[in-house]
Design a protein around this nucleic acid. Structure first.
Lengths: 196, 196, 196, 196
DNA sequence: CATGAATGAGGGTTCATTCAT
DNA sequence: GATGAATGAACCCTCATTCAT
């Protein structure tokens, strides 16, 4: 009637956003075609005009989430790599607290194996860790980070800290693994790698 | 006919084991009554003779898993609390590698929110962390662990390391977050808290 | 344990009472063996020690209800048959208002045909109407009721009034078909048959 | 394949008709989705394409039945309101005898409370009684019905007569509360209210 | 007299997907 | 690009009943 057909790309963006919203709220399992369709004011079969299957939608949503994390990694432009890591990490804390973001991220870990998303998710996770490792190597070149640390090792520890934040928030125990403790852990890591 | 009735407690144990097996393999979502029943050679309604609902079965499975972790925490009897922590942590690594164990544990994090298991899981998680903190306090009293560290903070960091092991295994990226790196992180933490 | 086995007749009475209670509250359909058993603190199979089937329990409950109505018919000992009818009818109104009674009665009408209770219920209903007709014939003999009215016809009309009271209560519209209107209808009937 | 898709409204009509048929035969409890679907040659889930739940189907069936009664009320166009009431009432008797009609109507009274239909049914019943009361007031204005009777009271008594017809038919005792006696009751009421 | 274990039938409902339009 | 109708599979759960104990 009054709703005009949307151009393909715009509709896809709409669908992906709705999907991430649903995943954050109800988990991957809760992101059913019925609900996604309702969210974008379409009928479920209409989704097949844009994606080949529910799995494709989920994968695209995962890609979008991945890009949001990448954006987070570039949210700081501090020339000092060490400080950049700190700012990125603190930004992560902030975004986790602003419920919504990163929530979907953890849900992908939680995705039922039969959704077949875990492997794909593992791959994106590797890229993100590698991205952090690049920053660390950057710092080693500029002299703000000790040259004798294993960049990948540190990147993983930072990622591990971020996961824990997300998971704690997800389980409703964010009061115990709180901003303060998360910060202490971050300081431990950064102190350890800081060039003296 | 030929299948003898099992006594209640034995049947419950059987059901819980089957459930954990299914959760490890297919996630919480995959542990359906149909499959659980098939696994123990019963019809789905028969499960209601032992549990009030699917949720009750899942909760009991969670409790069983919780007790396995508690057992893990007492798997070392080293009188030196610091070394006890090390042994417990390394045992965790070993068990994670022997696919199966702890896998179900992570699946509970991943459980769809509508299963209503996360809060319950968060509670057990808190208990486990507190259990680790007790060991740390133990070490502080016996002088093997620095008195000026926050026991809870350290316990969380150890838990965080364990989670990361499980999650990495789950996502199929255990090659990158491997035994070696996990060990390095452990050493970092223990070196930091060791009494000089 | 502490609960001694009950003598057969007492247990049956207990079961029947529980059944009527459940029927009043949840309808015939709601009087399941599970609930009846729970109500008398037994397991469902134990009921088979006293009755051959659920249907038998329901039939016995119906018989008990029938006797309660009979008691109602003899709740007045007024020697004047016309006044006896009035008192009986007003007592019915009172009992209907005291939610609980007669509720089960109507539920038997409502019983799903596949319960196979309606025919049995029709038979008891006939007996009750005939019982009222007897009172009317009594009045005709003693001269308080016109001799030219059809006793059965009037008995039915009185029964009809009683049903309407029950049904209106059941549908939650007792405010509209209320005590006053029910009373007016009663007066119509009794005025009509009163000997001049 | 060979079965063409039915347009929505037509399918809904088909479903409602099948539902009323089943309710007449097997009661509200007997109108299961399985049976309704089989009756219209569909699978049970297909019904959800037309109604949101079983309850919605039942409510729609109730509405359809309500409209049939309304039609009955307008089945007579006799200008004399008193005679109109007589014709309507006699038509009701006739329809009750033609097994099928009104049968479903009574079943709604009988619906298990947990179906949650009784309140809704009570509301429609009120409308029907009010509809009859309007005819009575009509007669009072045109002078065919005494001005000093309570229209609502009389309407209820007429409804009560109709219920009794239905219920007697339902219980299989229509031989006792038969056309003749029902007619006598009708004459009583109409004689009473007829203007002299 | 009563239980505990189990069953087969059936209940309402949700889901991803297909197909004709 | 989107819909409306329909499906098959699977979901959790309740029921009356049976049988061994």
């Amino acid at each position: 009637m009054s709703r005009p057909y949307l151009r393909g790309e715009e509709r896809k963006r709409q669908i992906v956003e709705a999907t991430l919203r649903l995943i954050s709220r109800d988990g991957v399992k809760g992101a059913t075609l019925n609900r996604i369709a309702a969210e974008v004011d379409l009928t479920p079969p209409a989704l097949y005009g844009h994606y080949g299957s529910r799995r494709d939608i989920l994968l695209d949503a995962m890609r979008a989430e991945f890009e949001m994390i990448l954006d987070l990694h570039h949210s700081s432009t501090n020339p000092n790599a060490l400080e950049r890591l700190r700012e990125i990490s603190l930004n992560h804390t902030k975004m986790t607290e602003e419920e919504g973001f990163a929530r979907a991220f953890v849900e992908f870990i939680a995705a039922s194996p039969d959704e077949g998303l875990r492997e794909a998710f593992g791959a994106t996770q590797l890229m993100l860790v590698e991205d952090l490792a690049d920053i660390i190597r950057d710092g080693q070149q500029q002299g703000t980070i000790r040259e004798d640390v294993d960049a990948a090792q540190i990147a993983w520890m930072l990622a591990c800290r971020a996961w824990t934040e997300d998971i704690a928030s997800l389980m409703g125990i964010a009061e115990h693994w709180n901003r303060g403790r998360s910060r202490v852990m971050l300081d431990h890591i950064l102190d350890f790698i800081a060039a003296k």
